[in-house]
Simulated assay, not measured.
Amino acid sequence: MSSGAEKIVSNIISDAQSKADIIIQKAQEETKTILEEGDKKAQFEGEKILESAEKQAQMKYQQLISEAKMNSRRKELEAREELIEESFAKAGAELERIASTSSEEYVESLKNVVSEAATEIGGGELVVLLKEEDISKIKDEIKDIEKDITDKTGQKTTFEIGETIKTIGGVVVKTKSGEIEVNNTIEARMLRFKKALRSEVAKVLFK
């Protein structure tokens, strides 16, 4: 090959080599860019996955804590309710015990609940209903209570002992016509005052 031809071939090869080098360099740069972007994307996606997992874990943790607190509170309330009910049961048993006696305390209580009911009705011709055992305990007090209610209401008041009732103790007072009735038995009073008493018992038990 002549020196001229060799030079031409050499130039062509040199140009090709230069172009190839440029292409290779460019490809390497693009590859590097792609790899870097891939790393960034992978890192970003990984962080997103991790962040999502952390959020889910935190949500689950908060849910478990919330449930635990609710269960703890429910059990606490159930325990308190049980203690309060037990207190009422004991109070009921003690009242029943007192009501089975002819003690001055119970007779005075009977007089008070008769007077309270009669005053609430407004006096007049009234019927008093008691358990059989209590009739003798209050009978001698009736005249004094009639006078007291007459003075309080300005309405002449008389009492008639009516039919016996089943009760722990206390009375039911009603007008002779039966239109108005006040239930002042121990059971009825306990039921009426239970809400207020529950609050007071809770204060004593859990102060």
Rank of each mutant, 00 (worst) to 15 (best):
S66R: 14
G162P: 04
I65E: 07
E116H: 12
D148I: 08
E108N: 13
N112M: 09
E200H: 01
I65W: 06
K75R: 13
E30V: 09
A42T: 08
I142D: 01
A53V: 10
S2W: 05
K143R: 15
V201M: 03
E51W: 07
D134I: 05
A188R: 03
E133T: 14
K174E: 09
A57H: 04
E133A: 13
D148T: 15
I142F: 07
I65M: 09
F44W: 10
V201Q: 04
G123I: 03
D140V: 09
N11E: 14
M70N: 11
T31W: 12
I34C: 05
K32V: 10
D148P: 00
A91R: 01
K166M: 09
I12C: 04
R189H: 00
E160I: 13
E54W: 02
A202C: 02
L77W: 02
S52A: 11
E200V: 13
D148R: 13
S177A: 13
L130Q: 01
A202W: 08
S177D: 15
E125Q: 14
A68P: 02
E141G: 06
A118T: 09
V114Y: 01
K7P: 02
N11A: 12
K48I: 11
S109M: 14
Q62L: 13
S72F: 06
E133M: 04
G46E: 11
S109F: 15
K90P: 00
T101D: 07
E104N: 12
R192D: 12
G38N: 04
E36C: 02
T101L: 04
A57M: 03
L35I: 14
E160D: 12
I22R: 09
Q25L: 04
Q58V: 08
E120C: 04
G38D: 00
G124H: 01
K143A: 15
K147L: 13
L64E: 14
S87H: 05
I168P: 00
I13H: 07
R198W: 06
E78C: 01
G178P: 05
A117Y: 06
